[in-house]
Design a protein around this nucleic acid. Structure first.
Lengths: 230, 230, 230, 230
DNA sequence: GATGAATGAGACTTCATTCAT
DNA sequence: TATGAATGAAGTCTCATTCAT
């Protein structure tokens, strides 16, 4: 429409890439920051490293984020999947048994969260949450609470249907949660990086835990639906 | 002028400062350091804070530890007493079933490690080990390996005796380890500090996990054939 | 409001700070460092003083030099341009007598080294070399050895031509070197700063020494026999 | 006389050594300090090192010297030989020629000062005088001025007697002083520690310089006393 | 917008000096 | 008097943040 438009056209071939980049800058910075924060910790990661990994200069980082702390918060916010609403819906309409639902839930979680870079957030929160009370509250509200609620509802349904033994869900939910948290922490900690049984075979790991848990939860032979062998 | 004056002179309020306690200092500093490192992370903890919490000045810390990093290493070393030898011995002479042994093992671990300040080391290693490869190697060798080996031996015995189902122990051991790791991490992370179900009732938590795991591992009533192997 | 305002805007009094002069900084810092190191000694000079004298902040110094010690090394290197190659060439093609050459050599040395700030390096090396073995080795190789070799060659030529008496050059060379070293040390030591006979009249000092040395070295009139050897 | 005297007698065998030591403490500290200050420089020498070399604890040093700086001043004071008065007297009654006197003077200086640990003072003053104006003034007054005066008087006598050429003594005196200063600096500087021609053969060095200087100063054949060859 | 030179608060560490024993 | 544990001011160096270009 304007002359400047024509002027811009001249460099369009070059600027296409650059402009795409420009739009993507904040995202690239968040990605780089997530990786580095997870790998080295928040304090031990230098702002310049983040910028360098994102392919920009130090100054540019502060163009998009007010401070290193704001960058941290943005990293958490950006990578916290608000997927639990969606999963709660799936739960409502799920047709199989509670056991199937629980297994499906853990596998899906691995595919959609555990296996992705977003899983680093778990480690990050465990390590740094103490220094960021507000971001921690946000994480509690967006992740911990919905996640625990979903697990609890599934298990409650299992108990109600007689699939699972009656138990105190305040504690029982952690038999599901702990193995998943442990898996992602292992993935991101130096401590188990050399362990071939873990990150490389996460699916097998998940399957093994599901198997044990479901056996552990299932109602004894004498009860309603799980009579089988007896 | 008064008798009390003379009495006080020896331990007067003024002389509280500059106490000479060469013997006690290292321990006090290690205690303070463990607390702060666990709470805030190694990098985020200032040397002066450690000194202050131990009730000494900045300089005194460096009288006993060559550097902040050496202090860190000493903290790790101090809190890893090779308890596993002792536990392995207990395992050898244990008279009960593998299930009893496993339950006993987890309860004992809680009493002797999980409930103590030493459990903070777990969080510390997870957060910072990446930046201290040599410390990490030491921790792997002194804690991770012996711990996993002990669990594995107990479970293997259970399988051999037909108490437990046959399973791939490379993965199954984590059904025991994950809940314990999760517990201590929860204890030391702000993330779950507000969660009333966890730290206050660790014994109940342990009991619940033991119950589920043992159910999950146990062989079905009709399949005592594996016993023959033992 | 006024035209002058617009003119001033570009180089306004306010913008004096935070000038960006990447090219010039290292040189300015090296200059400042040389002055201060010579004046107060390396250890007694604070990094911040060097920065301040160069008109920059503490941090800027470490932008250009990895450490204070690296700065020290750079100061030495910067002020030791391998002048001796050039002087050795001059010696090869010099047409006059050895005596003329020696006098020329000392005068030239004064002009090109002694009178410049580079002469402070001598004092610096004397005071601090003991604490920096590698720098010392470098200085030996780049300055001491070539310098002594040049003097020795000139004197040897004088002996060979019968101009100078035969003598043990291992010691005789110091009759030339000592007065020069003494001169620059005097120049840079508080000890003789109040001495009006020295720094202000270095040329006269040099001339007087040359006169005495040449008399001291020259062969007695009747002993021209050594000439045959040359 | 008193009981305590008898009591002391009991431990006298042991305390003889100790008491002798006690008396000697300040001297041992000054010795150690001189060595270390000369070797490493004032700032780079730690008070504790001095104490350790003297065989006492850090605290004891400060029992005898108010501060490290006072220790430095005491080292200088202690080691500045007020021998010039004595030497001036020798000069008055010396029977030989001025040349003999000059040679005797340099040899004697080497024996009584140059070869001793006290010669380190020269290096110390060159290196540190700038930071200690008052001690420097003291050194000027006690050493530099009397020393230069002595040399000047000897040379003036040589000129007066026709032994030496007329010359500007303001500069000529350094032909004698420079080689001596250079010698002790060489002895104490890392720069020439590896040079086998210097410290090991100081007497030869001195002799060579004396030879050249005397030749350099001596009156030409045509003058009164030094006719010889012509 | 993007850059990276410049800044300066703040961290680790040293060491002269003090003082209870 | 002698000791050496303790102190804290001061120095080196880092790095989040700013800002002129």
């Amino acid at each position: 429409m304007s002359i400047s438009k024509f002027l811009c056209d001249k460099t369009s071939a070059l600027s296409v890439k650059r402009e795409r980049r420009k739009e993507a800058r904040p995202g690239e910075l968040l990605d780089a920051a997530l990786d580095l924060f997870v790998e080295k910790g928040f304090t031990a990661t230098r702002a310049e490293e983040v910028a360098a990994r994102a392919g920009v200069s130090k100054g540019t980082l502060f163009l998009y984020f007010q401070s290193k702390e704001e960058l941290f918060k943005a990293v958490i916010r950006e990578n916290i999947s608000g997927r639990f609403k969606e999963w709660n819906d799936e739960f409502e309409t799920f047709e199989g048994t509670a056991a199937e639902m629980l297994g499906y839930c853990m596998s899906t979680w691995w595919e959609r969260v555990g296996a992705t870079r977003a899983s680093g957030i778990t480690k990050l929160m465990m390590s740094e949450a103490g220094n960021f009370p507000d971001i921690n509250a946000f994480y509690q509200q967006e992740v911990i609470q919905p996640g625990q609620t979903l697990i609890r509802r599934i298990m409650q349904r299992g108990i109600d249907r007689g699939e699972f033994r009656p138990m105190d869900l305040d504690y029982a939910i952690y038999s599901v949660i702990a193995p998943m948290v442990f898996l992602v922490l292992s993935k991101h900690s130096a401590g188990t990086c050399g362990d071939p049984t873990l990150p490389g075979n996460a699916e097998k790991y998940i399957a093994a835990q599901v198997d044990i848990i479901l056996h552990g939860l299932s109602a004894p032979p004498g009860s309603k639906t799980a009579k089988g062998k007896a």
